[in-house]
Design a protein around this nucleic acid. Structure first.
Lengths: 217, 217
DNA sequence: CCATCTTCTGACCATTTGGTCAAAAGGTTA
DNA sequence: TAACCTTTTGACCAAATGGTCAGAAGATGG
């Protein structure tokens, strides 16, 4: 069902551009497929079809299915680490935590496939991201936990367990991507609307700030 | 590597018992495999091997891989619904919510595979549990939400969004099964210990009760 | 002990799938 | 335009996998 007249469209484009565009197309298609069907459930053919290319062409750019998956994962992990930035000990948790929640929820809304792929990867034993977990992500984790401790030391926050607080923040925000389907069904929505995300922001912010003894103002 | 001398061991056992034991063995092995590798990533052979039976024997009890998966899912869903019971409008949220959190966390600790299979199923579009979601689970959901509303009406709880409160409870407790690996790595633990679960109970209870304006005593 | 039912299992098969390859086609550069 | 890249693609292959089947082995009831 790939109706695009590729040959016609591709005439006269420089090679570098072709390469970049094809790779983008493939990665994008792969992300969707992997999110929907998991690594094992995804076939190279289905990715190729979704990208509008013949299968060997996909294997031409990425040596193997695993290589493609790794490439997709890499992109995702970078996106992942971004949202964790901008939590600083100097900022007051009142704004910092709300901002973090907003950012994480936005990520769940805008990049649900990334979240799903990451979740499935962890779920199944993190065979491809073990190292990233132990290295960069752990550092980020420790830094963020340190910020929480600093807030506690300054009396800006009750002495709650900082590690588990961060786990809870991750879990509750990420679930708006991973379990969006369940939420849709249970809320009787066709799609999660902005309203739903606003409600999520409000509830989560309230639970965290009030629950940790941060004045909400 | 299946070293069990089956023939010797199986002599003299009545048929019904054999049947029951084999089915149990198979389902148990399947649950592990599906949790670790997902539906597509699991082979009937691997289940058979883990159950200590030849492959055709597995297909003898369950007509197909899909049939076996459905059987596993059914068990899981029943387990699932159980923990949601025992939230009643008459009870005070102070004890009821803590009890719920404890129960859910215990479930994550004791049956992580069930949780993982369910999570993966939702993640990938719930192809096999759509109906259960729309039927029994939605009813349970609505009932629980109604309990929250009743608490709010009685002034036992601040007027928070009850649907999202339940989502958050689910997400944060379930993550102790689904993302246990990530937690282990980030906490530098070999395994999650009782202490970790105690900390989780304390933090979650605090966030929810204090965050929702329930007096903690 | 015999007839009958259930369980077990090696051998086999059709399909799917990741991956290869050679050759054609398109693009680049002098 | 000619020599030399890179990209595209149909045809093909070996391995893995879900599932079948016929017949052996075990259990049951009279």
């Amino acid at each position: 069902m790939t109706e695009k007249k590729k040959t016609a469209k591709r005439t006269r484009r420089p090679l570098t551009e072709i390469r970049q565009e094809n790779i983008d197309q493939i990665v994008k298609a792969a992300e969707k497929q992997f999110a929907d069907n998991g690594f094992s459930g995804t076939t190279v053919s289905s990715i190729a079809e979704a990208a509008g290319l013949p299968k060997p062409n996909v294997l031409y750019y990425f040596k193997s299915k695993e290589g493609l998956y790794r490439a997709v994962l890499k992109r995702i992990l970078e996106l992942w680490m971004e949202a964790m930035h901008d939590l600083h000990a100097e900022d007051h948790p009142r704004e910092a935590l709300r901002g973090y929640i907003v950012r994480k929820l936005r990520q769940s809304r805008d990049f649900p496939d990334a979240s799903k792929i990451f979740a499935a990867e962890i779920l199944h034993g993190a065979p491809y991201v073990r190292e990233e977990l132990e290295g960069p992500l752990k550092r980020q984790f420790d830094d963020t936990v340190a910020v929480f401790r600093a807030w506690i030391a300054k009396g800006w926050m009750d002495p709650v367990n900082p590690e588990h607080l961060l786990f809870t923040l991750w879990a509750s925000t990420q679930s708006y991507a991973d379990f969006a389907l369940q939420m849709k069904v249970l809320l009787g929505r066709e799609e999660l609307a902005d309203d739903d995300f606003d409600n999520a922001i409000e509830l989560l912010t309230r639970l965290v700030l009030k629950g940790c003894g941060v004045k909400m103002v």
